[in-house]
Write a protein that binds this DNA or RNA. Structure first.
Length: 288
DNA sequence: AAAACAAACAACCGCACAATG
DNA sequence: CCATTGTGCGGTTGTTTGTTT
């Protein structure tokens, strides 16, 4: 007996999400928290599969998402982490608060890959292209390289400090700041598990800065449709232009943290929210 | 102005795996 | 243990938007 499909796909909607669907999903999750995704579409009044709802929420609607293009520093981190982790996008994303695996994966495929190739670096191996080409001609040597033992860390790992000017500073564990080259040199020495997470407290700094990112979100239909998000009013914070703004770079999330110092969205906080959402799903389905 | 093409990104799909009964 | 379920992950596709001809 094979595995059952994640949902009954008959009559389910596919493709871009509409503002109305987004509203329903947000409303449901803010009201009820994240429960089993399979049940969400039914309870929220959506003709979507649970998986689709989960993806929409985690990749797009989650309020702690940063959005906008990756900063130079974030890009550098992605490259560094990719050299250690490979295509383990979720692992990489876990080191970049407010970024999703999907976002990073897309950015990698559309921007970073090209950039590295232009710089003469192979995006797969992170080695100079000339060496990679040579190795392709010498499969035996390549195999030997793969079997090289993992280097043991010899120094204290670095950590990252986000500064008020919106840039990030590379800090050693002892607290002294490092320049980019020092950071890269040290960081490349460590294995995957040694890559430190950003100190949550440091998030306060980055979020208090309105010029954090230099880029804007290039949005597609769904984000345009979702401009309604800016109209959602949560206690003590506001959505900025969501996906449409040419000036605001935080697209709501920054403001959430800016005003609340919330680095992570605590689902338990939702219950107390006096939401001004169109609360049709919970009333329609008799929840609470 | 319109067609063709490229780039960017949202969304889907299938698989793997942990949890549960 | 085994079957089933729920969820997460990575690869891929589809759609939209921007640019060039």
């Amino acid at each position: 007996m094979g595995r059952q499909p994640c949902c009954d796909k008959v009559g389910l909607k596919k493709g871009p999400w509409t503002a109305e669907e987004d509203r329903k999903l947000i409303n449901f999750i803010l009201t009820n928290g994240q429960c089993c995704w399979r049940a969400v579409p039914k309870l929220a009044g959506l003709l979507r599969c649970g998986k689709s709802c989960r993806l929409r929420w985690t990749n797009y609607l989650r309020p702690d998402l940063k959005r906008g293009l990756l900063s130079d520093y974030e890009e550098k981190m992605v490259i560094d982490l990719h050299s250690q982790l490979g295509n383990r996008w979720s692992k990489i994303a876990s080191h970049l608060p407010g970024r999703t695996d999907n976002e990073i994966k897309n950015h990698w495929n559309t921007h970073i890959k090209k950039k590295l190739r232009k710089m003469g670096i192979d995006p797969l191996t992170h080695k100079p292209l000339s060496i990679v080409e040579q190795e392709d001609e010498e499969p035996v040597k390549k195999l030997q390289k793969i079997q090289m033992p993992i280097q043991e860390p010899v120094e204290e790992p670095t950590s990252y400090c986000l500064t008020k000017d919106g840039n990030t500073k590379n800090m050693s564990r002892l607290g002294e700041s490092l320049d980019d080259d020092q950071f890269m040199a040290i960081n490349l020495e460590y294995g995957v598990e040694d890559v430190p997470l950003i100190d949550p407290e440091s998030l306060e700094l980055i979020c208090s800065n309105s010029t954090m990112s230099s880029s804007t979100s290039t949005s597609s239909n769904s984000s345009n449709d979702s401009s309604f998000l800016k109209d959602l009013q949560f206690p003590d914070f506001e959505w900025s232009d969501y996906g449409n703004s040419s000036n605001d770079n935080n697209n709501g999330v920054g403001n959430i943290i800016e005003n609340n110092m919330m680095s992570l969205w605590d689902i338990n906080d939702f219950s107390s929210l006096d939401l001004l959402l169109n609360d049709e799903s919970s009333s329609t389905f008799g929840l609470f």
